[in-house]
C-alpha cells in the first residue's frame, strides 16, 4: 500500500470510520511504515484535542448589544423601496419623455420646409454673431488708442489696483486671521 492511500484511510477513519478490511489494510501498513505510524499518532492526537476543545461563548450581554445595532426593518424596507423607485423613475421617465417627443414632433422633422427654415435661422444667427464680434473688436481698438493718448489713465488704474490690494491685505489681517478655527 502507498503512503497516500494509507493517509486517505486515516482520514476516512477519523471522519466516517473504516470497515474491517480497510482497518486491517491500514494496520498492516502502519506496522511496516514508521513514518506513517508517527503521522497517524499525530493525527489522532490532534483529532482528540480538537474534539475535546469546547466552543467559546461571547461575553455576557451579546444579545442586547446585537439587538441595539439592528436596523429598523420596516423603515429600511421603505427606504430601500423609495431608493429603487426613484432610480427606476430617473431612468424610465426620460425615456418616456423622449419617446413622446419623438412621436409628437417626429413626423414634422421630415418636412423639407422645416429644414429650409432651420438653415435660414442658423445663417441669420451666424451673421448676428459676426456683427457683434466686429463691434467688440472696434470698441477694444478705440479704447487702446484712447489709453495710449492719455498716460494719466494708466497712473489712475495702477493707483486703483494698489488700493484694492492694500484693503484686501488689511481685511485678511483683521477678519480672516482672527476667525475661530473649526474643530
Amino acid at each position: 500500500m502507498e503512503h497516500e492511500e494509507a493517509y486517505s484511510l486515516m482520514m476516512m477513519d477519523l471522519d466516517e470510520g473504516l470497515d474491517t478490511r480497510q482497518a486491517d489494510q491500514l494496520d498492516r501498513h502502519l506496522i511496516l511504515c514508521m513514518a506513517c505510524a508517527r503521522e497517524w499518532q499525530a493525527l489522532q492526537s490532534i483529532h482528540q484535542l480538537f474534539l475535546h476543545t469546547p466552543a467559546l461563548s461571547p461575553v455576557a450581554g451579546f444579545t442586547q448589544r446585537t439587538l441595539a445595532r439592528l436596523p429598523e426593518g420596516r423603515q429600511r424596507v421603505w427606504f430601500l423601496g423609495l431608493v429603487y423607485l426613484s432610480l427606476l423613475l430617473s431612468g424610465v421617465l426620460p425615456v418616456i419623455g423622449l419617446g413622446w417627443l419623438a412621436l409628437r414632433f417626429g413626423p414634422a422633422l421630415f418636412e423639407p420646409a422645416i429644414w429650409g427654415g432651420l438653415a435660414q435661422a442658423a445663417g441669420q444667427l451666424g451673421q448676428l454673431l459676426v456683427t457683434l464680434l466686429s463691434a467688440l473688436w472696434l470698441g477694444l481698438e478705440g479704447l487702446a488708442t484712447y489709453a495710449s493718448q492719455h498716460p494719466l489713465l494708466w497712473v489712475y488704474l495702477l493707483l486703483l489696483t494698489a488700493v484694492v490690494v492694500l484693503w484686501g491685505g488689511i481685511y485678511r489681517q483683521l477678519v480672516l486671521v482672527n476667525a475661530p478655527i473649526r474643530s
Binding site: A55, L56, S57, P58, T63, T66, E72
Partner: peptide, 20 residues
C-alpha cells in the same frame, strides 16, 4: 414581520456557534 424580540431569541440560541 420585524419583531426584534423574536430575533433576539434566535440570537440567544445561536450566539455561541456563531461567535465560536
Amino acid at each position: 414581520q420585524g419583531d426584534k424580540a423574536a430575533f433576539g431569541n434566535l440570537i440567544e440560541a445561536y450566539q455561541t456557534p456563531v461567535f465560536n
